[in-house]
Design a protein around this nucleic acid. Structure first.
Lengths: 161, 161
DNA sequence: CGGCGGAACTACACCCGTGTGACTTCCACA
DNA sequence: TGTGGAAGTCACACGGGTGTAGTTCCGCCG
């Protein structure tokens, strides 16, 4: 992250927690334990301020959605690291599918069970992990309405606070 | 509890967890930490079998309802001990009311905030903790249908397993 | 009665989330 | 520039819940 981050870029930790729908304490814990870290500005010690990019918020929302669906956080961690390391993919760009208590990734190559690190291929009742991005956008607009109607790209910081 | 408990009286731990809608591990933890204990037969070591009375199930259901409403388990413990010790009441016979993040008991004497040990009296939006018993009964009938239509008293064991 | 298999409990480790006090940083204002 | 207050992070403790391997109990069958 850049130390030259302007203070109005991205989202504060407090805002981020509100938008994603988690407690600050959860967000803090997830940042400290390297699940999702603030990419614009990491904590620099007591009293400093984290800054999250829109992309971070999307990742957090994916985490929340998976946890709300009953996937244990430790398993969510496994999924994130597997996607990043073994698939060399970006979690926010995958078509994740929840079915039962497992997480599938579904693309033209077929369907892969992420909780089993790609082992086995299942075709069960598919509940698409749909609308995560739309839901995030809606919450941002609802909580922090602005006159800027541009859709934020994943890397560009949205106007948050 | 009586060591002469017959095996078909009351409910096994596994059945109890199913009916109340919690994991066995939760039930085990709650029994070990004395939140709600199996009144018909306590654990006697590895391999023994707990037996729960209908009244225990009702208490467990109250716990679950409070926890689901966002009351921390530690606070639920406070409520239970306060009701039992200071009010000399039976939790399953009170008209509990959830409002916001607090628990009220409401009777002809007025309304008391149990989370504050009776301090303060609030009249806010009232959401009655209604139907706990009815819901429990419905779950028992749904999971373990029998031909016995008698409504179980609090102390008499229902036909469970 | 004895043996066996399955179910139940136990102990321990571990992670998660919360609460809280201490400390630091940041920001706004004079 | 200096100050004060608010906000944010940090460290620690603690309870809740889960997972798992080990042990014991219980019921059934021969």
């Amino acid at each position: 992250m850049s130390n030259a981050t302007r203070n109005d870029e991205g989202f504060s930790a407090k805002r981020t927690a509100e938008i994603v729908g988690i407690t600050y304490r959860q967000l803090d814990h997830w940042a400290r334990t390297h699940l999702v870290e603030p990419s614009l500005a990491a904590a620099q010690g007591s009293g400093s301020r984290r800054r999250y990019a829109y992309r971070d918020l999307l990742e957090l929302k994916v985490v929340k959605t998976l946890v709300d669906a009953g996937i244990r956080l430790q398993k969510v961690r496994d999924v994130f690291s597997f996607v990043g390391e073994s698939l060399d993919q970006d979690i926010t760009r995958l078509n994740l599918v929840l079915t039962g208590d497992t997480v599938l990734v579904h693309d033209q190559n077929g369907t892969m069970d992420l909780l089993r690190r790609g082992q086995g291929v299942l075709m069960l009742n598919i509940l698409p992990l749909a609308g995560v991005k739309e839901e995030l956008d809606a919450t941002i607009i609802e909580l922090f309405p602005t006159e800027d109607d541009d859709e934020p790209s994943l890397d560009a910081p949205a106007v948050g606070d």
